[in-house]
Design a binder for these strands. Structure first.
Lengths: 165, 165
DNA sequence: TTGCGTGCAAAGGTTTTGCATGGCA
DNA sequence: TGCCATGCAAAACCTTTGCACGCAA
């Protein structure tokens, strides 16, 4: 049905997929993805100036590809409270539809909760309360263990933590 | 938690609170709230037509009050997939912080899930997985009983969620 | 070759902000 | 009376769309 990435295999699409697959536990806005693939490829390497002349992938192309990739279920789309949307790589198994996602509001990390109790709760909600939860679209917000133990954010060279207010 | 809405008691603020309190189980965009309080008062499911927009309360005032009321935890803010935000009256008890919210992606209805199993799951996630879930900010998306029975009529979709709240 | 994918720019919608004025405490 | 809140408009922001050209199949 939609298991393939339904379309041409362009270099732009490949860049987006490669970048998202390299960071499966993180979420990015369209703008972040656009900047990332126009500068470095895995973004943990050397520093670079923002306005590199090598910028090629347009933001509208990123948006169009993100829509396509979400339809192909290669990516997942989430809405933030700030109004913008963020995208995350979906595991090829597609099992993200079967467990909860925990998102730390401090560091932005995404934790895939593979837990029997959550399955039981989902079954309970479906049976008793008649509500079919779509786990792939549901995110539980809170504080992860790292951030609760240490309130100071570590200044990593990784992706800058989005403001997200 | 007794903290009132932190500011003056203006007529505009009162209109917004009254309107939202009159529809505790519904969600509205800022624009809908603005139109509603400028035309009718309880709209009772029939109005909401374009109306004359004899604006008295400005849209920016609505936005500013919504931010204030959310900070005071009088309202809750949710993000829709379309990118816009919707607001809903929060129960005065403030116990919304202690249970899950189920949101139907079809009809937009919010169900307050007051269920022992969810409490157990939250405790389990905190103890075993070290993640402190903020229930008030977490929303589970899915299909509610009404909409699922409307789509695919399978028998026995009864048992309405005893939302309590 | 065929037509989808792309880049650029402009449009569209939502939310925020600046500034002068009005109203609550 | 002192400030905060309001209204209006413009700005800021995110996302989509139109159009001509490039490139995968």
């Amino acid at each position: 049905m939609r298991e393939r990435a339904g379309g041409y295999q362009t270099s732009q699409k490949k860049k987006i997929i490669d970048f998202m697959r390299a960071h499966p536990d993180r979420q990015f806005t369209a703008d972040e993805i656009c900047k990332a693939i126009n500068t470095a490829k895995v973004l943990d390497g050397s520093e670079m100036t923002a306005s590199a002349s090598a910028s090629k992938v347009g933001l509208s192309t990123v948006y169009r590809q993100l829509i396509s990739l979400c339809n192909s279920e290669i990516l997942h789309k989430f809405s933030t409270e700030g109004g913008s949307s963020v995208y995350q790589f979906a595991s090829p198994d597609g099992n993200c539809s079967h467990h909860f996602h925990l998102k730390c509001i401090e560091c932005g990390r995404i934790i895939h909760l593979d837990c029997r109790m959550s399955d039981e709760l989902l079954a309970h909600i479906a049976d008793v309360h008649g509500f079919e939860v779509n786990s792939g679209k549901s995110v539980l917000y809170g504080i992860c263990d790292r951030c609760s133990s240490a309130e100071s954010p570590k200044g990593g060279s990784d992706t800058p933590c989005r403001s997200l207010s």
